[in-house]
Amino acid sequence: MNHVKVGMISFAHGHAFSYLRGLLELPNVTVTGIADEVRDRVAGVVEKHGLAYYEDYRELLKTDIDAVVICSENVHHAQQTIDSANAGKHVLCEKPLGISTEEMQRMIDVCREKGVQLMTAFPCRYITAVLDAKAAIERGEIGEILAIKGTNRGTMPGSWFIEPELSGGGAVLDHTVHVMDLMNWFLDSPVAEVYAEAGTFFHDIKVDDSGMVHVKFENGVIAALDTSWSRPKMFPTWGDVTMEIVGTKGVVSIDSFNQKNEVFSNLAAKPTYSGWGDSMDGRLVEGFVNAIANGTPVPITGEDGLKSAQVALAAYESIAQKKAIKL
């Protein structure tokens, strides 16, 4: 297997830390450096792992790396991906892939033109429970899928996530895409229609912190997804990823992070869940670098990222027009 040299662009999204951890564990990968305009954000990991630091990501792109991992604010994904592709680097881009259909299509097109691969970071595809449920469905255990109720409820992330000029949207954009991608992956049927409700209920912020996104697929499947940042400060964990999949012959329920121990400690401000399930982020970056090393297609494409982000964008259109939107 070929060796892969990876650089990382921005740690604005906290997932960068676990992606880095995952990359450092892989035998065929060298992480060479990190570019981040906020030095403080990465000073710790740069020093700890002896990495090169770049204030400007374009300097990182001039080095001999094979690939980049982009975890910047949503609005920067497109430009950084396109610059990376132009520099001949493969790209793993944090979700949502972009904030408009047009820019996401451009990201996909430029990567294709430059002969580099573009992967969207949807780690939920590597949740062991999700894979187990998908296999059960493929074995026909619940017949044909009729409907899905999903939740990706979380804690309000704060920072740039709630600045619309950096995030491009609120909870609906942030939390539609993960489970939407799982639905697309399970169903392999285009989305026909989207209806959504949203609001700002839990926090005094400039973006939506709540959403209920409804989808009808071309194959007739109906789905609803709660995307809200509705977990209070006192909640024992950050949030959830659940899917209840109703088929003609049965039901599969997934509660992705229910592999947990409950911790009641006088030293903590609240009871907490200590998750002991498998890591998904490590397997995501492994899937990316193995595809690059072997010259095989990445497991989750830019088109996948576009498809699920488009549902979030249609949800915002539905909210504005107060009606169901055909895609």
Partner: peptide, 16 residues
């Protein structure tokens, strides 16, 4: 807003 699936043996509906 509501969506519904109906088969011979089940009826599944989501109402918002």
């Amino acid at each position: 807003y509501a969506m519904s699936r109906l088969t011979e043996h089940m009826e599944y509906t989501l109402v918002t």
